[in-house]
Amino acid sequence: MKTSFSIGNVEFKNRVLVASGTFGYGDEVKDLVDVNKLGGIVTKSLSWKPRDGNPPRRIVETPSGMLNSIGLANVGVHAFIREKLPYLRTLKTKIVVNIAASSVQEYCDVLTLLDTQEGVDAYEINVSCPNVKEGGLNFGTDCRMTREITAQLRPLTRKPLIIKLTPNVTHISEFARAVEDAGADAVSVINTLVGMAVDVRTRKPKLSTVTGGLSGPAIKPIALAKVYEVAQAVKIPVFGIGGIQSAEDAIEFLLVGATAVQVGTMNFVDATASARIVEEIREFAEKENLDDVGKLVGALDANIKHSVLQSWL
């Protein structure tokens, strides 16, 4: 059974990665799960300098999901290289470093520095954090800006450049096409949706930043539709993200056109879930008499004539 796939010259051993911000830097859960079973680890977003993040409250559970407003709290790229990368280098899985920044220059600086380091396999560019004032959604919801960041970063590395897109726009496929044009190797779809929760007794928003990013099973149907839309629009690989809890969820994403998936919020509930999903996808493919999990990618049996999506794609 072939489970691997490649982007550029980087081969991922299977199609299940863990999403940025939901698996730390890999060392926190090493007692619970064999992280080498994963197709890859996408790290917590890194910025040039450490970021404190937002004041509490940062987390609220909502029906079948959660709102977060962490605000990109992270150790900064220098501490990452010093303290986290040595451990990540020992792993037998691919390391995708996620980068967040508040200016185009900062994205370039972080990527340029990381590109001198051994042990970084690919980059995922976060242009879509809903919880920071600068460099978050004001980049990711501006198609020209998103293209510009991609175009600036492209010549700085030969490693795969993955752009993580926000669903908080009217047509996400326009953004996917823009970054494909600008040289991106893949897109990650989707980041969190802007959401809100209110405490009726105090009349205050539950999150300190008023709104936050919604994730978890609640967003899976939206994420599937966005992945389907993007997969129809571009030729580059799509990482499907949004509310995956099981192999069945993951396979839905593959069928609508995701080349691979990232498991996010579920890692907070059960750090062993992602490794289990890897195994269960393989079992599913065996039962379906496939010799390659990749044969599930885009294998959706849909009547395109009836798809509403086609009218504006």
Binding site: E28, P56, R58, I59, N68, F268
Partner: peptide, 13 residues
């Protein structure tokens, strides 16, 4: 208020 309890989610500052 925390999600993971093990330092990953950064939810409980």
């Amino acid at each position: 208020d925390m999600a993971c309890g093990i330092g990953i989610c950064q939810g409980c500052p």
